[in-house]
């Protein structure tokens, strides 16, 4: 067994923040929060027609970045790492290739990157950025659901009190809000397509909820 990941006491003491590549090698397959629902099989055997389509984007890298939005050096550093400037307007998001960045709070952004890149991106931040900031890997704590289809807005109106009218909730807008009796980060990624970031421990509840509330429209699970 490799000990490449082990830090010595001296190394740790020198580190202001502990960074760890938390993903093992490819021989060990991670299990997303909805692993037990076996969505892959449902996609094969389940209905192919319906007003709402659901797809899980599993095992992505989730990084929560906190910094001072008035610190231009930090903003520049973030842009160097991500290739795109942090969105500073409340409730907006930006994308750069496989990276996407969501405004969560005046000093907080949620960054999604491919699962295997989380450690690289985190390390780059640690290299590039100075001053007071925080970067937290929360990849194991959430998963991403993509909901789409002609009835997706009707479905979401049954889940969240957010006004989803396209004039008030255009593509790219992101909100952190209540979702049924849980919570979700909702982002519009298309006219009839939304992305939900949900917490691991609530994912089964939300999966059950979505199955129940989509009854009037029909739910198609996709891979």
């Amino acid at each position: 067994m490799s000990d490449l990941n082990v830090m010595t006491a001296a190394e740790m003491a020198a580190t202001k923040a502990a960074v760890m590549d938390q993903v093992p090698g490819p021989e060990i397959q991670g299990q997303s929060p909805l692993h037990h629902a076996d969505l892959d099989s449902l996609a094969k055997v389940g209905p192919k027609q319906g007003g709402v389509h659901l797809r899980e984007h599993k095992l992505l890298g989730h990084l929560t970045l906190r910094l001072n939005p008035e610190n231009d050096d930090q903003l520049a550093a973030a842009e160097r790492v991500l290739g795109v400037a942090l969105p500073l307007q409340p409730l907006t998001s930006v994308e750069n290739g496989s990276y996407s960045v969501r405004w969560m709070s005046p000093d907080e952004w949620l960054i999604l990157v491919p699962g295997l890149e989380a450690f690289d991106v985190e390390s780059k931040f640690r290299d590039e950025m100075g001053g007071h900031y925080s970067l937290v890997n929360s990849s194991g704590g959430s998963t991403v659901l993509e909901l789409s289809g002609p009835d997706v807005v009707e479905l979401l109106k049954r889940c969240t009190p957010i006004d989803l009218h396209p004039k008030l909730f255009p593509v790219g807008k992101v909100v952190s809000t209540v979702f049924a009796k849980s919570s979700a980060i909702i982002r519009r990624t298309g006219e009839q397509r939304f992305e939900l970031v949900i917490r691991r421990s609530f994912s089964d509840y939300i999966w059950l909820w979505l199955q129940e509330t989509s009854r009037e429209f029909g739910l198609v699970v996709k891979v």
């Binding site: 929560t64 906190r66 000093d107 007071h132 900031y133 925080s134 937290v136 890997n137 929360s138 990849s139 194991g140 704590g141 959430s142 917490r199 691991r200 421990s201």
Partner: peptide, 11 residues
């Protein structure tokens, strides 16, 4: 200078 973030579900 401090930031707090929940990682309850992460670990």
């Amino acid at each position: 200078e401090v930031y707090f973030n929940t990682v309850t579900d992460h670990w």
